[in-house]
Nucleic acid binder design. Structure first.
Lengths: 217, 217
DNA sequence: TCGAAATTGTGAAATAATGCACATGATTTG
DNA sequence: CAAATCATGTGCATTATTTCACAATTTCGA
């Protein structure tokens, strides 16, 4: 299940976070940025920024700061986002449809190359992006054939595991799962779960405790 | 013994996670559930489940397990999801539209009561759920008037802060921010950020290191 | 050229979170 | 009714993560 790594996983999450303001700095021709500035914009501690980067090398200049463009390039190289990744998506409900059209993904180098739905009546419908919805039974063949890198699951919970199995069959290596169920996966496939209502529940808990005057994190 | 003073925030996140399978158990008339079973379904350690619950009380029976229905009720009470929460959403692009229609939210007791867009040309358009899109300038008055609990931001990054300011003006207490920028907020408003491409980047990093034969989590 | 200011990189301390292991209490079985 | 079994609750050791604090390095101005 879990092997050893010396890189804390919160560090990876934050590297992605840092890249947002860095992109802005590059676009606005701000050549140099300090760990303090970056930390402020990302809501973290400056020492944290430096330590996160230190896991991978020395990218800054003491007394000066970091070259925004260079640091951004390094972070992209570290994360693996310096190349295009292809994605297929299973479950073309409202959420699925919106993700396929999502500009942020495209801008960051992700490209949707196939869209599936378990309900074969949706098959054939053409999406604004040009893709046509395919029946889920096509997944193994299509995904293998296209050499798709990542899968996104946006089916209802009860169908998530079935969608996942089809993706495993296609030998996919990573899945972003938006359904509310945990998917059981073989060793060779990495699953990242994003349960949107969990996020809302977090918010609600904090508001509740705040209102009740209880101490909170 | 209920000691609410120092609740780890991962615990809160997991409580929400536990409620999913618990709901299924209740629906399928499975009255008793063990920490081991629950842990397995959520991909965590059984001791973790017990410890998480122990922060809030003793809900199980030694040698037996937990009453699914009762535990679910308790978790909902703890999280504050035992009542309806009203939501307004700002940014009616693809993502915003899909969230408004999202069934999961409705099932969990969240209700959208207003939808806004900064582009006033979208105003007046009626959504499938019955709401009509309003211009963002209406936020302060409308949100206050309706006593909305939570805000969701689904605008492009560059407009996120502006959307947030309008929500602050309406005295909103919590915001779920889907844009790729960190929003600066006053003390009195809690922000939860959900950057979807950060999730993808995590996945990509793990795949990269896997491919390169590097040790990983 | 020197000293002050700025800012990184990092060892070590502090804090936080997890998981083990076992005492405890419930239930079942022979 | 005793023994075996099961599963919770929890003290404590372990592991993970964050933050501090300061030496090292660069820049700038007098």
């Amino acid at each position: 299940m879990t092997k050893r790594s010396k890189i804390p996983s919160p560090t990876i999450e934050r590297l992605a976070l840092y890249s947002r303001p860095l992109q802005s700095f590059v676009e606005s021709d701000t050549p140099i940025v300090s760990s303090e500035k970056l930390a402020e914009l990302c809501g973290v501690n400056p020492a944290q920024v430096r330590k996160d980067l230190a896991y991978f090398g020395e990218f800054g200049v003491r007394g000066v700061g970091y070259d925004a463009q260079e640091l951004l390039r390094e972070i992209k190289r570290i994360l693996g986002t310096d190349r295009e990744w292809t994605i297929c998506i299973v479950g073309m409900g409202n959420l699925g449809m919106s993700l396929v059209e999502n500009d942020n993904f495209r801008k960051r180098g992700y490209r949707f190359v196939a869209a599936f739905d378990l309900d074969s009546r949706k098959a054939g419908r053409r999406l604004p992006c040009g893709l046509a919805i395919q029946p889920a039974c096509n997944i193994p063949e299509q995904v293998r054939g296209l050499g798709v890198d990542l899968g996104i699951i946006t089916t209802p919970s009860r169908e998530a595991q079935r969608a996942a199995e089809l993706l495993f069959k296609a030998n996919i290596k990573g899945i972003l799962n938006f359904s509310a169920t945990q998917v059981r996966a073989p060793e060779c496939c990495i699953i990242e779960n994003v349960d949107l209502s969990v996020k809302l529940e977090n918010l609600v808990y904090h508001l509740e405790t705040l209102y009740k005057g209880m101490p909170m994190k």
